[in-house]
Nucleic acid binder design. Structure first.
Lengths: 95, 95
DNA sequence: TTTGACTTGTCACAAAGTGTCAAAAATAGG
DNA sequence: CCTATTTTTGACACTTTGTGACAAGTCAAA
């Protein structure tokens, strides 16, 4: 499971949209959306942005979930994950 | 530039080691170390661990710098980077 | 000018990511 | 139960990215 995917499925069902419809909106195959919702495939930033419109969800929420998933994918189960995260956080806060 | 690379170069010079020597220790080409120190190439986890021994630097410090670089590479210049980071942080704190 | 340290670019190969398709599985409606 | 529709799955071709090695390059010091 997957944070962004979970959110997307939730929002999609709340709006009574089919995978097929979401896929058409993003101009991709239905299978891709199915997989994205279950965390088997990644969407790209533009696709997430478009989804935030279609699904009436805040851009910030969706994009930060998307980033969150990518981060977890990268530091995942490393025993120093939190330490790395904190270092990154401090560096990004500067900019 | 690169956080891990910077640290490694610093530590290597403090110990008066040559790229060649570090490379031999890790059993890779000298060029790879040169690039790693300048952030052009990534090392893998084992290599970083071995380096922490050779360079007498704490494992935690080096690995978390390594993770930090990976995180920044992924969320890099996204305008929601910090929000994503915070979400990831909260999730990882749970586990 | 020669030597040794470091850097750079390129190569071949491996690994991972991307979107699509067809078919299978699950689900809902009659 | 049967059928139609939605969703999931696995395979595929293709592209992109990563990896390690090599050879040639720069540069400074002796």
């Amino acid at each position: 499971m997957n944070n962004l995917g979970q959110k997307i499925r939730e929002a999609r069902e709340k709006q009574h949209l089919l995978l097929r419809q979401v896929a058409a909106y993003l101009e991709v195959d239905t299978a891709l959306i199915s997989k994205a919702e279950r965390g088997e495939r990644n969407l790209n930033r533009e696709q997430v942005l478009k989804l935030s419109m279609l699904l009436k969800t805040s851009e910030e929420e969706l994009i930060s979930l998307w980033l969150c998933d990518k981060i977890i994918g990268v530091v995942g189960d490393d025993s120093y994950a939190l330490q790395g995260l904190n270092k990154a956080r401090n560096i990004l806060k500067e900019l």
